[in-house]
């Protein structure tokens, strides 16, 4: 069997934030023992609110942040003891598309240079080949080749996100980390980019780690849906059974707080959600949980397999 494209095992990451000009530091635990893997051709969608650690997970998966504890594997190779040569061959295989298409493209580079730079460094120094590859990819992402001579500021948000996708594909990657790829775009443009990401995935046999806070976006693209709350992966569920299974109380909360514009009007009454975020020793979700019991105060539950298609970190589900 093939090795999983990405595997992270028991990742912990703590940030030390300096305040008062470095006189004091306090700790922010971004990830608490997260483990997951992505098989070839799979899309894992990660849901969670801002500050829950989902972007940190993305950075760790990209190898941009080093976890305090735990290990990251790319195609079965641990990032810890990776020699230079393997690193050079593996790194292009894992690429990123970021949220804000306005700040993720160098404003002084023409689109031609934006696309060619990673190719010349990682694939081959042949400029001609690179250009034809760039042209082919621009066609794939639905842009005219005339944009090659343009600068990023001449393009709209949707066009820039297409360029970001094309740039990531220049080096023949196998895994794309998509960090909120459509949240800066309008609904109509978001639809186009989502469809494009689905087509590209099939065409180039890509795997995605999709980080988003939008339920419909994750639902559209992902095979597996992971939910992170305060740095803990509280649930991992396959899309096919998402609708009929019982969920972790936090997942339930997320589903309930999603405003469906096409819901029949009687559901549109009132949703009450209490909220006091800080956490204690026990379960991370303790303070907001409606189904807590004694056990929940003692330890943080770990992710347990419920069925082949669902893993939940909760004592009471």
């Amino acid at each position: 069997m093939n090795k999983p494209v990405l595997e992270v095992k028991n990742i912990w990451k703590t940030y030390h934030v300096k305040v008062l000009g470095g006189l004091k530091t306090y700790e922010v635990v971004a990830l608490r023992g997260v483990s997951l893997k992505i098989e070839k051709g799979e899309v894992l969608g990660i849901l969670g609110e801002s500050g829950c650690g989902k972007s940190t997970l993305g950075k760790i998966a990209l190898g941009l942040e080093i976890p305090d504890e735990g290990e990251v594997f790319w195609f079965g190779n641990s990032l810890k003891n990776l020699d230079r040569k393997t690193c050079k061959t593996l790194r292009p295989k894992v690429q990123a598309v970021l949220q804000d298409p306005y700040s993720s493209l160098n404003p002084r580079y023409k689109i031609k240079e934006v696309l060619l730079e990673p190719y010349l460094i990682n694939v081959s120094p042949d400029k001609k080949e690179g250009l034809s590859k760039a042209q082919e990819l621009l066609n794939q992402v639905g842009l005219d080749t005339s944009v090659l001579e343009k600068y990023p500021h001449e393009l709209s948000g949707g066009q820039r996100q297409r360029i970001a996708l094309a740039r990531a594909l220049m080096v023949n990657p196998e895994l794309l980390v998509l960090d909120e790829p459509t949240s800066a775009l309008d609904v109509t443009i978001q639809a186009q980019i989502l469809e494009l990401m689905k087509t590209l995935k099939e065409r180039y046999q890509l795997s995605y780690l999709l980080i988003s806070h939008s339920l419909p976006v994750v639902f559209y693209l992902a095979d597996w849906i992971g939910v992170i709350y305060l740095g803990t992966l509280v649930e991992l569920c396959h899309k096919s059974s998402f609708k009929r299974l019982n969920h972790h109380p936090y997942t339930e909360l997320l589903i309930r707080s999603y405003l469906d514009p096409f819901a029949p009007s009687q559901i549109f009454s009132e949703i009450e959600i209490e909220l006091n975020p800080p956490i204690s020793d026990g379960c991370v979700f303790l303070d907001r949980c409606p189904v807590k019991t004694k056990d929940c105060y003692k330890t943080n539950p770990s992710l347990v397999k419920k069925t082949d298609l669902q893993y939940i970190a909760c004592f009471n589900i």
Partner: peptide
Amino acid sequence: ALINSYPKEGKFKVDLKV
């Protein structure tokens, strides 16, 4: 176009001329 491009049950219609 706006309403059709909103993902409903994992499906939506793409407005190509945007």
